[in-house]
Deep mutational scan, measured.
Amino acid sequence: VTVHVDGVEYDFDNPEEALKFAKKVAEDKNGTYEVHGNQIRVT
């Protein structure tokens, strides 16, 4: 699973970890996250 944040890609073997990371980053920057299959984009 790849999490995209501001043009940087973070790869996770564990989808739950990826989702947790995306949620935290989105909260920290008052943004949102979208899941597209095995890609998660934080905006």
Rank of each mutant, 00 (worst) to 15 (best):
D6K: 04
D13P: 12
A26Y: 03
V1A: 10
V42C: 03
H36R: 11
A26D: 01
H36P: 02
E17A: 09
G31I: 05
T2Q: 07
E34P: 01
E16C: 12
F12Q: 00
Y10E: 02
F12W: 02
E17Q: 08
V1E: 01
P15H: 14
N14I: 07
V5N: 03
Y10R: 03
V1W: 15
E16F: 07
V35C: 12
K29Y: 15
T43P: 04
E17G: 04
F21I: 03
K24Q: 13
D13M: 10
A22D: 02
A18Y: 01
E9V: 15
E27S: 12
G7Y: 04
F21L: 04
A26P: 00
T32N: 11
P15D: 09
A18P: 00
V8M: 12
G37E: 08
L19G: 02
R41D: 08
E27K: 13
A26N: 02
A22H: 00
Y33W: 10
D6L: 06
E9W: 13
E9R: 14
E17Y: 05
Y10K: 03
F21R: 03
N30L: 08
F21D: 03
G31L: 09
Q39G: 05
F12I: 01
E27W: 10
E9A: 14
E27C: 15
A26V: 06
A26C: 13
K24W: 07
D6P: 01
N30A: 06
K29M: 15
E17W: 05
A22N: 01
H4F: 14
V5I: 11
Y10A: 02
V35A: 05
D6I: 03
N38Q: 08
V42M: 04
A18Q: 00
Q39L: 12
V42F: 04
Q39C: 14
G37P: 04
K20T: 07
H36G: 05
N38C: 11
V25S: 08
P15M: 15
V25A: 12
G37L: 07
F21Q: 03
A26S: 09
K24L: 10
F12A: 00
T43L: 14
V8L: 11
E27D: 11
K23F: 04
N30V: 04
V1K: 04
P15Q: 13
E34I: 12
A18I: 00
T43R: 11
H4T: 13
G31R: 06
E16K: 08
D13R: 08
E16L: 08
Q39R: 09
V5T: 04
E17P: 03
T2S: 09
N38W: 02
D6Y: 06
V35G: 03
Y10V: 05
V5A: 05
T32W: 14
L19E: 08
E27H: 13
V25Q: 11
E34T: 09
I40V: 06
K23Y: 04
N38M: 06
V3T: 01
T43I: 15
T43Q: 11
G31Y: 11
N38L: 06
R41V: 15
E34A: 06
H4K: 08
R41L: 14
T2N: 04
K24S: 12
T32A: 12
A22R: 00
A26E: 02
Y33M: 10
G37Q: 06
T2H: 07
V42G: 01
V42T: 03
V5D: 04
N14W: 05
E9H: 13
V1D: 02
F12T: 00
A26Q: 03
P15F: 15
K23R: 09
V25N: 05
G7D: 07
A22K: 00
I40E: 01
G7K: 04
F12G: 01
V1S: 06
